[in-house]
Amino acid sequence: MLPENEVDDVSPELPETEVVYSLMRTQRFLSNRLTKMLAPYGVGWTRYEIMQSLVRADREPVSVLTLAHTLERHWTSVSKAITGLERAGHVTRYLNPSNRRENLVELTDFGFTAFQRVDKALATEAAACIPEDPTAGNLLLNLGSLERRLRAAMDDSRPVGQHGYR
């Protein structure tokens, strides 16, 4: 749950820069809290996002570059995180048989089970961060809508991967 003094200072008449500042502070708060929660599972935020992306792709193979675009991270950072996931037995990485310049990543059964355990714990922790307020659900919907509108306004022209991911 956010500290009370930080919840109360949000006003509907905030100038745009204050809204952005408040969103960024909230994002840092949540990111730090959830990263600490993931530590005992041996999974950092990037590794969790990679596993989540592979689950969302129906556990089909996804290229490293598609994952990088989806996660909005440099491909070398994603590749390094994948190496850690490989060592833990959560994913396998191999050359695409139809394009040997491309590496594909696939979630293992062990990785899927680990993801489910981490995802459940993360959902519980994330729920504890959201104020128990009837407007919280609307706020989350509005944030999702804001993200989609910002992406459209910025003419997000990155390539779309095999499963519709950017």
Rank of each mutant, 00 (worst) to 15 (best):
T76Y: 12
R93Q: 09
T135P: 02
R100D: 08
G161L: 01
E125S: 05
A127D: 05
A136T: 10
N96M: 03
V43H: 06
T70L: 03
V43I: 13
E60Y: 00
N142Y: 08
M24L: 08
Y165H: 15
F115T: 00
L2F: 13
S22C: 06
E125I: 00
M51L: 10
R33V: 12
T76P: 08
P131M: 02
V91W: 04
W45D: 07
Y21D: 12
E4N: 13
P3C: 07
M1T: 09
V7K: 12
G111S: 07
T26N: 02
T46S: 02
S11E: 12
V91N: 02
L122R: 14
I50G: 08
A153I: 10
A121I: 09
M51Q: 04
E102T: 12
S53P: 01
N99R: 05
L122P: 11
D109G: 09
E18H: 13
G111I: 05
V105L: 11
A57H: 01
N138E: 08
R158E: 12
R56M: 03
N96Y: 04
D119Y: 01
L54H: 02
A121F: 14
D8P: 05
T70F: 01
V64N: 07
E147C: 10
Q162H: 06
L30R: 13
A128Y: 07
C129A: 09
V43S: 04
N138F: 07
T46E: 02
L30E: 10
D58M: 01
R93I: 04
T108A: 03
M154F: 09
P3Q: 11
E132D: 12
P15A: 04
T46Q: 02
R101K: 08
A123C: 04
T46V: 10
M37H: 15
T66L: 03
L67G: 03
S22T: 14
P131R: 05
L38W: 10
L107T: 01
A123N: 11
A153Y: 14
V64F: 02
L85K: 06
A68F: 11
P61N: 09
A39T: 09
E6K: 05
G44M: 06
T17A: 14
N99H: 01
